[in-house]
Amino acid sequence: MFISTGSGDPSFKGFTLVMPAVSVGNVGQLAVDLLISTLNMPKVGYLHTDCLIPMAGNNPYATCAEDASQLSTNAEVYSHSDLKLAVLQIRTPIIQTKVRSFRKLLVSWIKSCGFVKTVLLSSSHAYQRDDRQLLGTSLRYLLTPPLQKLEVQRVEELGWREMERISLFPDIPDSEQRLYIPGGGVTKALYTDCCTEDISMAVVLIFCSEGDNIADAFMLINHLNEWLHLLEKPTQGSVKWRVPPSWRLLFGSGIPPLLF
């Protein structure tokens, strides 16, 4: 259930929604963190649901001591009205028995908000790639039929590669082809839901392995920026993304000084 932080519900008419799938290496979530932090997006509401594991902490995007004490929860919505951009950040895994109802909740929320398009940032196990997928870029996309009509030309101009369908029985010609996104969490199911519900959705994903996935997050968000132009790319070098303070101490606390 969406609960607004203000008095009235914010209007998302004509907005683009960017959200992560909780997937391998949490790349989608890290990329969304970069987006919220760099664009300094204000929080507009919570997605308060029993489908996610509860979690709370202080402001992950704090820029000064004053705003550090704002509480943040497991699923929050941020908005940027000039860019007509809404971002949903999900910070905890989905409870395994409630995956289905979480998808239902997302689909109905996306529908009720009237987003122009939804972008799902995701990842998939690098070690499960097939021969075709091992060549070239590690980034892939998927578009639902309503979005395909509008955007397929644009992404082809950018040289993006569509996620390959895998044969159900390899080496047997004419065997059934299907979508296979191992480690992608709800990615495949949510994409399928959006296809049947006629929702304009794009999946942008990266093949990666679990570990320090910061580099993957930068790759994914730069890739998305090529398409959506959320931040202007400088003529030299790449976009300067702001790493949020919550990424500190990724490998644990300080080391005992007596070790040395």
């Binding site: 594991i53 709370a56 902490g57 202080n58 402001n59 919550s246 500190r248 101490l249």
Partner: peptide, 12 residues
């Protein structure tokens, strides 16, 4: 509680 610490469970 300082970032990047979080709480989970019943209190959260």
């Amino acid at each position: 509680l300082e970032q990047p610490n979080i709480i989970t469970g019943l209190s959260a």
